[in-house]
Nucleic acid binder design. Structure first.
Lengths: 198, 198
DNA sequence: TAAATAATCTAACACTGTTAAGCAAAGGTA
DNA sequence: TACCTTTGCTTAACAGTGTTAGATTATTTA
């Protein structure tokens, strides 16, 4: 019965191949160029077999989105482990978020809908919520107990997120700002918000 | 020769009809649903005649984008006229930006590529640059002369823009935050940045 | 070896943006 | 009035898209 396992492993392989082929195509030609037939070509099959692994094209994008959040979560975990002071940890987490957005540009695009049309963030699965929760918890930790209401944490969380995501979006759609200025804006804004929490 | 004028006016009418039909469709069914044949149906023609008025689909989106920037510019102008203090003017301008994004959600989406795929911001025509320039100039005005370098103004400009655009993007892709909190975040962040300029 | 099952492909549907060819009505000219 | 040319518009088509049904081939099981 070990052959069953081998076959299952092979099926898993082609599933991964589909996902890998997809990001390859996106990296080469952008999200708009991603088509079922192109994916099939790349994995040396015909288009219909993809539907044995994914319900439809959106399901592929959803899985890539999920994987993106997993990666982001891991990077944040690592950022935390490299500092002991909560404020420094939070800053490192946002920096990790920032770096992830450009290191995995294509994933960030599908995760946060910058220049992508698809998949309107339907299923809020745990993987997707994790990075958000990590940031939220860390902010909660920094805020002194007497100010620590859910609303206050929410406000600070969304303020930080807005700055970072906004700056990333702007950088991705048009590229005018210099790298030094990005770092400056990021440090200024995030630093200011973090300082205002205490 | 007045009949020539009438005919030209009619041509202008259908051009406008094409644009109006386009936003109508987008408002009803979203950007993804916008197709040449649907536009044609709405203006009671067949698809190919659209190409007598616009080079291709992207050209339609570009024109809508341009019109969006014109509207935004006018709203900002109005915001300025309603205050005398530069800091208050700037705050009103950002508020106008914010309100525009939700009053003309579809336009904002095509202007800033939130959940849209098309038209990668190719031709930076004056109409498009105007709102940016208005904000930039106002920020320059607020910053005291001894700090007023181009880089410093740039930094403050992008910081503000990032917060606002980020918050808008987040609100448009997922809607979790409450209206009151949005205003709070906006006022907090923008207010803070403006205060830090002086 | 024969039957049953799994794996894969071909063909098709309805849609997309876009172009070329053709028809029909209007305009100008003799 | 007759012809010609231009304009306005349509039909038909091409190549591409996501997706499904049916047929075909290969593999496993009895």
């Amino acid at each position: 019965m070990a052959s069953k396992d081998r076959i299952l492993r092979l099926k898993d392989d082609t599933r991964n191949n589909i996902l890998a082929a997809s990001i390859d195509i996106v990296k080469e030609e952008g999200w708009q160029a991603l088509s079922m037939r192109k994916i099939a070509d790349k994995i040396e099959y015909t288009a219909p077999i993809i539907y044995e692994y994914f319900a439809n094209k959106d399901a592929i994008l959803n899985e890539l989105t999920r994987q993106g959040y997993v990666k982001l979560g891991n990077l944040m975990q690592q950022a935390i482990s490299e500092h002991s002071d909560p404020a420094q940890q939070l800053e490192a987490m946002w920096l990790a978020y920032w770096n992830f957005a450009f290191a995995e540009k294509e994933l960030y695009q599908v995760m946060y809908g910058v220049e992508v049309n698809c998949c309107a963030m339907q299923n809020m699965c745990p993987d997707i919520q994790k990075p958000m929760n990590m940031l939220w918890d860390k902010i909660e930790e920094i805020i002194p107990a007497d100010k620590r209401t859910e609303e206050y944490v929410d406000t600070k969380y969304y303020t930080c997120w807005s700055v970072v995501h906004g700056l990333i979006s702007i950088n991705m759609t048009r590229k005018l700002t210099s790298d030094e200025m990005n770092k400056q804006v990021l440090k200024d804004a995030i630093g200011g918000i973090i300082a205002s929490m205490k």
